[in-house]
């Protein structure tokens, strides 16, 4: 099988059953993406495939041979952090850190979705759904943090989204 991950081409011999997550972790040494539940419930394995966030544990590697795959390692490195990585550090958006790579990859995908104008379950108006704290929480609900660092995760994402305090906590009608 052949893959493009973080801009690098790889040829890999792997069992047909290999998930995209196991491909990265077990075959390519990219252990940033984490295996939490392995059932698509926790989000720790989130990667970006063709720019969209997905659960890499719930997809077969063989189905992604012609895709552009980005893992946490491709977003930034210790000497050159992605803005979201830096914001998670400065806002203490984690405790144990296990969910963090998935949180950050998910946040990158989520911010892009918001930029495209995609609404969410809590958007009162589906055609005009600016980000605020409530929107961020809803849109990030596929990423579980066992340490419950959620308030700081929202702070980090809100900072990178460039939200003011007023934008973060607007008076809103809560959708049913």
């Amino acid at each position: 099988m052949h893959f493009t991950i973080n801009g690098q081409h790889h040829e890999v011999e792997a069992d047909i059953r290999t998930s995209l997550l196991d491909l990265a972790r077990e075959h390519l040494g990219l252990t940033g993406s984490k295996k939490g539940c392995d059932h698509g419930q926790c989000g720790a394995c989130t990667m970006l495939v063709n720019g969209r966030r997905i659960n890499s544990c719930l997809t077969l590697a063989v189905m992604h041979q012609d895709d552009e795959i980005v893992t946490i390692e491709g977003l930034g490195q210790p000497d050159k952090l992605h803005p979201l990585q830096a914001a998670f550090v400065s806002h203490d958006g984690y405790q144990c850190g296990y969910c963090t790579p998935g949180q950050i990859c998910s946040a990158v995908g989520m911010l892009d979705e918001a930029k495209k104008g995609w609404p969410s379950h809590v958007s009162a108006d589906l055609t005009d759904a600016p980000l605020d704290d409530h929107e961020i929480s809803e849109r990030m609900s596929g990423n579980i943090c066992r340490c419950a660092a959620y308030p700081n995760i929202v702070d980090a994402i809100a900072e990178v989204a460039g939200l003011s305090d007023e934008q973060r906590q607007p008076e809103r009608e809560v959708a049913a």
Partner: peptide, 21 residues
């Protein structure tokens, strides 16, 4: 605009990652 109930139902289901797939 024409089938809001469908958008609402989809957005009420699963997570962002799952809806993308």
């Amino acid at each position: 605009e024409k089938y809001e109930v469908l958008s609402r139902a989809l957005l009420a289901g699963a997570s962002g990652q799952l809806r993308n797939k």
